Simulated scan of single mutants.
Amino acid sequence: MIKAIDVLRVMAEHKESEFEFRIYSPNTEQGYSDTELSKLPAYVEAHSTFAKLRGNEKMAIQVTEFFESDFQTIASLTMDGQLICERKAYGQPMEAIKHALFEQGTYSEMVEKQFMGLRTGRTLLVPEMNESMAGGLMKEFMAWRKEGNQ
């Protein structure tokens, strides 16, 4: 099951990609249908954080705000034209199609928890590091460096 934070993480990690998502229609939200989609898909351009509607580009909202309030209305999400996750019907959980995109390494999970703790003002307890966790951290760090990050 995919949550809004998982999709936002994928979008942040692939900010050079364009994302498009299909939204359920008001008829579906009101219970008249299980799968009817809105006529206009929403999208997020590469290197942008604003969601817009195709055909009505003046209507824009921060993607984080939209996902916090309306994630359950999203039927499917594509990245550069490829389907990455979908919901079979309104009210059903979002399921990954491209599972590798949604896998999170130990290091990025720890960093995400720290950022969430800073945002909410909560104290985070970091578990004692064992050999497996240390190996996972280093493996992910080396992959990150190999991609040309500094």
Rank of each mutant, 00 (worst) to 15 (best):
A75V: 15
V7D: 05
M116G: 01
T73K: 05
Q82T: 08
K88I: 12
G135Y: 09
A134C: 08
K88V: 14
A46M: 08
R145P: 01
M1Q: 15
D34T: 11
M110A: 11
M11A: 10
M11H: 12
L37V: 08
Q114R: 13
T49V: 10
R9Y: 06
V44H: 02
P127C: 06
I5H: 11
Y43A: 07
F67K: 03
P41N: 07
R145S: 06
G148Y: 10
A100K: 14
F102R: 06
T64E: 13
L137S: 04
A4I: 07
R54G: 04
A46N: 04
E109Y: 11
T73L: 03
M79P: 00
I23E: 09
E112K: 08
F66I: 05
T49C: 04
L124M: 01
M116E: 10
E68Y: 11
Q62I: 07
N27D: 05
E18Q: 12
M79N: 01
L118Y: 07
L101F: 13
Y107F: 15
R119L: 12
V10Q: 02
S76N: 13
Y107A: 09
A143E: 14
V10A: 05
S48C: 02
Y24G: 01
E65R: 03
M142Q: 15
E128P: 03
K98A: 15
T106L: 10
N27Y: 08
